[in-house]
Design a protein around this nucleic acid. Structure first.
Length: 666
DNA sequence: CAGTGAGCGAGCTTCCGCTTGACTT
């Protein structure tokens, strides 16, 4: 009988840790949270100065809880080794409560990586449960319950029965409908670029018209970004074919072209950081066409273990993480692998470490990496199915690349200047970049989204050797017509990227957020792009009109600031939650949200001839036209079109003001 | 196919975040 009991969240982790700790320890998994607010009840009970959250053990957790209780009774000591983040601290506390473990004891153990050293080190320094951190989690849980369970019923009354609103899902939906609005409003703008074909025997090379009479040639997007008049006047936008033709003609009239301002530079490019959940989902969608859900399913299989030879072995580290950190063990192994597989030129003298913390990151785990770099994709291929191999290959390459030398490019930039004979000056610019050393690119290059800024670093055109003062001839010149394009609709990958940047949602929820929007029929997915449904657009318009604070993309960040204060012991969770609930209930009482109805200008009621208005039907989930005298007159007509007038914002007090008033009262 | 859709009504719906199976196809 083991003397000590250890609780972790994941069964795969339990197995590994048990191996490291030896025979005196039994390790059980909680399988995530073991208690939660019941679904069927609001369960946030507010008295004068206290807030009670009515937790219960859901059926699905009962068997894990009873196993933990049973073992805890017999154990000499119980260690709570759940994840080191806010949710993990709360799980530890719930386990202690349910299993009757004394929270005054130093029984809380945390580690950020599953390596033997890290775990043994952690067990030599147990601490007490951090009550402030637990309080912060309870506040988070309560705020989410309040938003979801107070706003959703107003939607049932006013839009359609059974639908939902939430701190995360409603902002995600808002991003999608805002983008759709942008696309509808968008009108393409024409512009031209001019390209010269210059001769440097025996080669031809291309250069772009860069400056005309001291004004830099630009495009509509760049022009928009320069809002001040001064710099705008220094820019030249070629708006139409006539202007383009004039510039081509001026180009042809130049007698002699002279090379000036040749700049040669060596450019180094570094590999992308190791995978975290969000970047893995993005890259798997870009390169493999996997949805976020599919990526996570396959990653889970790789994590839990595959029969490689004799025993099941986890091929990757934990897949729900927001940390780019790699353990020292992993770094050493990677360095060694790069040296033996690719040679000294590709190896780093000193490990490359990444620290990029994103908003709200809690960094409870390592980055997603192969558990051993020596399990090369080719060697494990026969044990994996197609999806598993594709994803493992991606993770392996990305990870190995992080410990390889930078790629080196020779970049050359040259201006080619000519006078057109009537006092004007034209300047063409040629840029070329040639890879001198591939470095990490030998193994892996990160994919790109179509909406990424074009940094131009993909240029590979090789230029002849140009030097200041060289004279050149022009072979020909041509104009190219362009039109600006609207921003692209979100994909799962690009949506998750924005959500993560705003601190909205967590690695364990990115895939399910998308699932919620689809299953509520707020959006539909076509060739991986999100299109909002009429229902989705009405829900957002309604929430923007009546609860703008909640669908503000900054709401979560504001909440997180408050939670940090609670975690630091600078604020109490109960007044915060109580004030927030009061504020939401006041909003509902004062603002009296109603079913959306919009006057129609040019339609008359078929029954009585009076004015009509657009009304959204919750049953058919589309707009129809109704007599404005309803219910006195029952005249209706079908109504096509989706346009929704823009809504004024009501101000942005939100949680911040709830918190502010909470502070002033205590 | 033509025509409804909102409201009444009984009672139901709903959040986010942490973990895997137990199902079916």
């Amino acid at each position: 009988m083991a003397k000590n009991l250890v609780i972790v969240e994941s069964p795969a982790k339990a197995k590994t840790i048990e191996k490291y700790l030896g025979a005196d320890y039994k390790v059980l998994a909680s399988y995530g949270h073991i208690r939660d607010l019941p679904r069927s009840d609001f369960a946030v009970e507010v008295a004068d100065s206290t807030v009670a959250l009515k937790y219960e053990v859901p059926k699905s957790s009962a068997k894990y809880v009873s196993a933990i209780k049973k073992e805890a009774k017999n154990a000499e000591r119980v260690f709570l080794a759940t994840d080191l983040d806010r949710e993990g601290e709360a799980i530890a506390w719930h386990v202690a409560e349910v299993a009757g473990v004394d929270t005054a004891l130093e029984n809380r153990v945390v580690f950020a990586e599953i390596t033997r050293d890290a775990i043994l080190e952690a067990f030599s320094h147990p601490r007490r449960i951090d009550e402030h951190l637990v309080d912060a989690q309870q506040a988070r849980r309560a705020v989410d319950r309040i938003v979801g369970y107070r706003l959703s019923p107003t939607l049932w009354r006013n839009v359609a029965s059974g639908i939902s609103a939430g701190r995360v899902q409603s902002v995600a939906l808002r991003l999608i409908t805002d983008r759709e609005d942008e696309i509808r409003r968008f009108t393409p703008v024409e512009y031209w670029s001019i390209h010269g074909d210059f001769v440097r025997d025996p080669k031809h090379f291309a250069a772009d018209l860069h400056m005309v009479d001291g004004r830099r040639v630009t495009n509509p997007k760049q022009l928009d970004e320069r809002t001040d008049k001064g710099t705008q006047d220094q820019l030249l936008l070629i708006r139409d074919a006539e202007t383009a033709e004039v510039l081509q003609e001026r180009t042809r009239q130049v007698g002699q072209w002279r090379v000036a301002d040749v700049t040669r530079r060596e450019v180094k490019r570094n590999p992308a950081p190791p995978f975290i959940t969000s970047t893995l989902q993005q890259e798997a969608e870009r390169k493999l066409g996997f949805s976020a859900g599919r990526t996570m399913r396959v990653a889970q299989q790789l994590y839990e273990g595959i029969n490689v030879g004799s025993d099941a072995v986890g091929l990757i580290t934990y897949m729900r993480t927001d940390s780019v950190n790699l353990s020292d063990t992993a770094l050493n192994e990677l360095t060694e692998l790069v040296r033996t597989d690719y040679g000294d030129r590709y190896a780093l003298g000193k490990a490359r470490r990444y620290s990029g913390k994103t908003k709200g990151a809690q960094e409870a785990h390592e980055a997603i990496r192969p558990t051993s770099a020596y399990r090369r994709p080719g060697q494990v291929a026969r044990h994996l199915d197609r999806d598993q191999l594709a994803l493992y290959d991606l993770i392996w390459k990305r990870t190995v690349a992080t410990q390889m030398a930078a790629a080196v490019f020779d970049s050359l930039r040259a201006d080619i200047v000519g006078a057109d004979g009537s006092g004007g000056e034209l300047k063409y610019r040629a840029t070329g970049q040639v890879m001198k050393f591939d470095g990490y690119i030998k193994v892996y290059v990160e994919g790109r989204d179509e909406d990424d800024e074009d940094t131009g670093d993909g240029t590979t055109a090789e230029l002849p050797d140009l030097n200041d003062g060289d004279t050149l001839a022009l072979a020909r010149v041509r104009g190219e017509q362009h039109f600006t394009s609207p921003p692209p609709r979100y994909t799962g990958a690009s949506l998750v990227k924005v959500l993560e940047a705003e601190g909205i949602g967590r690695p364990s929820t990115y895939a399910s957020i998308i699932q919620v929007l689809v299953s509520r029929e707020y959006v539909r997915v076509e060739s991986r792009r999100f299109f909002p449904s009429p229902l989705g657009e009405v829900v957002v318009a309604y929430l923007k009109q009546h609860f703008p604070e909640i669908v503000d993309v900054g709401f979560t960040a504001t909440m997180e600031d408050e939670l940090d204060e609670i975690a630091d012991g600078d604020q109490q969770w109960e007044p915060m939650v109580r004030e927030f609930l009061t504020e939401i209930d006041d909003w509902i009482a004062e603002r009296k949200p109603e079913r959306p109805r919009i006057p129609i200008e040019d339609q008359a009621c078929p029954e009585c001839g009076q004015a009509m208005e657009k009304v959204f039907s919750g049953k058919s989930r589309q707009w129809f036209a109704s007599c404005h005298r309803w219910p006195d007159c029952k005249g209706t007509l079908p109504h096509s079109g989706h346009a929704w007038p823009s809504m004024g914002m009501r101000g942005r007090s939100g949680l911040r003001s709830a918190i502010a008033s909470a502070r002033s009262t205590c």
